[in-house]
Amino acid sequence: MKNNLQGLVDLDRVIHEPARLMLVMILATVESADFLFLQGETGLTKGNLSAHLSKLEKAEYVRIEKTFKGKYPLTICRLTPAGRRALTNYRSSIGEALGKGR
């Protein structure tokens, strides 16, 4: 248990932050989603969401592209393979530390 707990120190802090964890978890279940969708699902303000997405993009966990759907401009976000791997590792680390099945 002690060793497992020590594993918490090595948790990926980019993902560990609750708002970013929420974003990564949502993006892991879809192919891509736009800014407005993520805002609605997370309840974050525009500024907050923008800041968290920038951090995830900087860590190369999320790719952001500007595009259009019809006449409507979209900011599309999608999880990168590195982001997916980071989430898997995070889940496994936290699962080991807290005990699986809890």
Partner: peptide, 14 residues
């Protein structure tokens, strides 16, 4: 595209 995306955003499912 016309009524939902501008209101609730766009999502592409896996």
């Amino acid at each position: 595209t016309k009524y939902v995306v501008p209101r609730a955003g766009y999502v592409e499912y896996r």
